[in-house]
């Protein structure tokens, strides 16, 4: 699949932002005044910025409001509804922290649930697709949720959940690579099943149907830099999970070190998310004899 920068930025930034929203909502930590404004501002900034980035790849962003209507059937619609609901629920909690209004924390807990639910719906947009076998399994929700947990905990300065998150993340990243490499083979689809001509014999492409790449090929068949996969996998695993995990033990923790660890984590997250798209094979490629 084509690794569109807008979607990579959207999923990493909004995932981290929603994670931070969840921690702030739950009251870990409970900053006040200006500190609260900066914390909540960062969380809202990342989440809203990510959501806006996701509209850049739309053909008609001005119609995006229509995407809230089909929550009964569509994971993408559910994501939109869940994101907006979460941002609205948490707004009074944020104001309460900043201005010391003393609203009950239960509102924040509700918002924290909403934040993780939103991340879950984002992951299901990908995990629901049978056409992309690498995504069509439980490792995708595991990946997105542990990214939100780790990223959110690092930004919130919470070392215990960050350690737990980084550990969960290591397993999710490794399982996603390992399961993903076998997924297309396990799905059992070939050019033979795509055309049904396997009932006659061994099928190979004789001539392509068009001379220039089309929308399908640009969007769903991606070759460039798959050769860099081993190095990028190392950056993804090391940056998003192993380095932050080690740093949390070894480095004296302060807001500054948490910020540095969060940046390292984000770098790994972006590398992982690039691979998430670039390595994913869509079955339509089989018609073109490509993957």
């Amino acid at each position: 699949m084509h690794p569109a920068p807008s979607v990579i930025l959207f999923t990493t930034f909004s995932g981290m932002g929603l994670g931070l929203l969840a921690f702030l909502g739950a009251g870990f930590p409970t900053p006040q005044g200006l500190t609260a404004f900066l914390h909540w501002g960062l969380a809202y900034g990342l989440t809203v910025g990510g959501l806006l980035a996701s509209t850049f790849h739309l053909g008609h962003p001005e119609r995006a409001w229509r995407a809230f209507s089909q929550w009964r059937s569509s994971w993408l619609s559910r994501e939109g509804v869940a994101a907006v609901a979460t941002l609205l629920i948490l707004a009074p909690m944020a104001l309460s922290d900043i201005f010391g209004l003393g609203l009950p924390r239960v509102i924040g807990w509700l918002g924290a649930l909403g934040a993780f639910a939103t991340v879950g719906t984002t992951s299901m947009i990908y995990a629901q697709l049978k056409t992309v076998p690498r995504w069509n399994n439980w490792t995708v929700p595991a990946l997105f949720l542990s990214y939100a947990l780790t990223g959110g905990a690092l930004l919130a300065g919470q070392s215990t959940p960050a350690l737990a998150g980084a550990l969960a993340l290591a397993f999710a990243v490794i399982f996603h690579f390992q399961k993903g490499d076998l997924a297309l083979h396990m799905a059992g689809e070939t050019t033979g099943t795509a055309t049904g001509l396997d009932r006659i014999g061994a099928v190979k492409v004789f001539e392509q149907p068009h001379t220039q790449p089309n929308y399908l090929m640009r969007e769903m068949i991606f070759h460039v830099a798959r050769k860099h996969v081993p190095v990028l996998r190392l950056i993804a695993l090391g940056g998003s999970s192993i380095l932050p995990w080690m740093a949390l033990f070894l480095v004296p923790l302060s807001p500054l070190t948490f910020a540095v660890i969060a940046v390292i984590h984000l770098t790994g997250a972006i590398a992982q998310r690039w691979l998430f798209f670039a390595e994913a094979e869509h079955v339509v490629g089989l018609y073109y004899g490509e993957r």
């Binding site: 053909g59 008609h60 119609r63 993408l76 947009i125 992309v132 399908l216 769903m220 018609y287």
Partner: peptide, 19 residues
Amino acid sequence: ACIGCGLCAWACPYGAREL
């Protein structure tokens, strides 16, 4: 009503949809 998000083209195994 189409916002051109492309998710339907992703969901189709047969490459039936083009933007």
